[in-house]
């Protein structure tokens, strides 16, 4: 086992993937000499050379377009988008080519491209540095969307994303970059599309991913005081979606709250809530609720804590799960 921060785990995953497969090439802005603005690629240019860890001009669409051409020639590009909102110029390449090329060419041109995007807020970033853009990607057929929340998964899921023959949008929760944990480089590369139950509970299921996992775990700890024993399910992968694990949990607890940092309206939580409703209707004691960021542009640093869901807002939602329908007396 190796222990350090999520940034270190991602760095080792990239290095190990490059050592394992000469087709893996990194492209991005400031990823070479500087090692990336978050240092995720630190030392890799020195170790593998500028031909495999390439600083590019500031041109996100062009970078991803280049990755398409490199994949056509048999390479396995890993693109770093410097920040969530800086990935938007590349959206046309992503939606029109990365996501569609395999289908368009009946499998002749697979796109084994990993697009790493540091995403979400909570780090005091000024405007355009804190967006949660997962819904755009999850809505686009042909893409896989992966969002680790633990240090171990940052290593394992990034290895899995790079090995996948499908394009993967890999969303790295910035607020957890400096979280500490352990990972096992010798462990088998995990499959994509498996959720994990991070905390066992019986009263209700919190379903979440990415930067909201620690907040949900804290909420579950707090909830004990109110007599609720909350289960926490972490998706890990938005596409593929693990209906089985989510539905199994909600059928057991009978209640669910979906928690994400992104705005709620037409957000990924709506998909999660709908899928739970479709599969667990007869097991539900209350409607599935969502706790999300507000439907406003991401706030400036001094206001962001009002926007990001916290323990209080999650517990308020749990309190609204129609406990009065329970046979037992509600907790006072």
């Amino acid at each position: 086992m190796t222990g350090a921060t999520m940034v270190h785990a991602l760095n080792q995953a990239l290095g190990d993937a490059m050592a394992a497969d000469p087709a893996v090439h990194l492209l991005g802005e400031d990823i070479g000499t500087l090692g990336g603005v978050f240092r995720v690629t630190d030392g890799l240019a020195g170790r593998f050379g500028g031909d495999r860890v390439t600083d590019t001009p500031v041109a996100e669409s062009g970078i991803l377009g280049m990755a398409v051409g490199m994949a056509m020639y048999g390479l396995r590009p890993v693109v770093e988008m410097q920040f969530d909102a800086f990935a938007y110029p590349a959206f046309e390449q992503l939606a029109s080519h990365v996501a569609k090329m395999r289908n368009r060419t009946r499998g002749a041109l697979p796109m084994p491209i990993t697009i790493r995007i540091p995403y979400g807020g909570g780090i005091g970033g000024v405007e355009h540095h804190s967006d949660s853009s997962e819904a755009y990607y999850a809505h686009t057929p042909g893409l896989l969307v992966v969002a680790p929340a633990t240090v171990a998964d940052a290593y394992g899921l990034l290895r899995a994303a790079i090995e996948a023959d499908d394009p993967v949008v890999f969303l790295e929760p910035k607020v957890l970059y400096w979280a500490k944990g352990q990972w096992d480089p010798a462990a088998p590369v995990p499959p994509l599309g498996r959720a994990a139950v991070r905390r066992r509970g019986t009263s209700a299921s919190l379903v979440t991913y990415g930067p909201m996992l620690p907040v949900c775990l804290a909420a579950a700890d707090s909830a004990r005081q109110s007599g609720w024993d909350l289960e926490v399910v972490e998706l890990r992968s938005l596409v593929p979606f693990d209906d089985e694990t989510v539905a199994e949990s909600v059928r057991r607890t009978g209640r669910a709250v979906v928690v994400h940092e992104a705005s709620g309206f037409a957000g990924f939580g709506a998909e999660v809530a709908a899928r739970i409703g479709e599969r667990c209707f007869h097991y539900l004691e209350a409607p599935v609720l969502r706790v999300t960021g507000f439907d406003v542009p991401y706030p400036p640093p001094l206001l962001e804590h009002h926007h990001r869901p916290g323990v209080e807002r999650i517990l308020a939602a749990v309190a609204r799960l129609q406990w009065e329908s329970e046979w037992r007396e509600p907790a006072r």
Partner: peptide
């Protein structure tokens, strides 16, 4: 045109 550059680069 960007795809062409990527393939040529590779």
């Amino acid at each position: 045109t960007a795809h062409a550059v990527g393939l040529a680069h590779a």
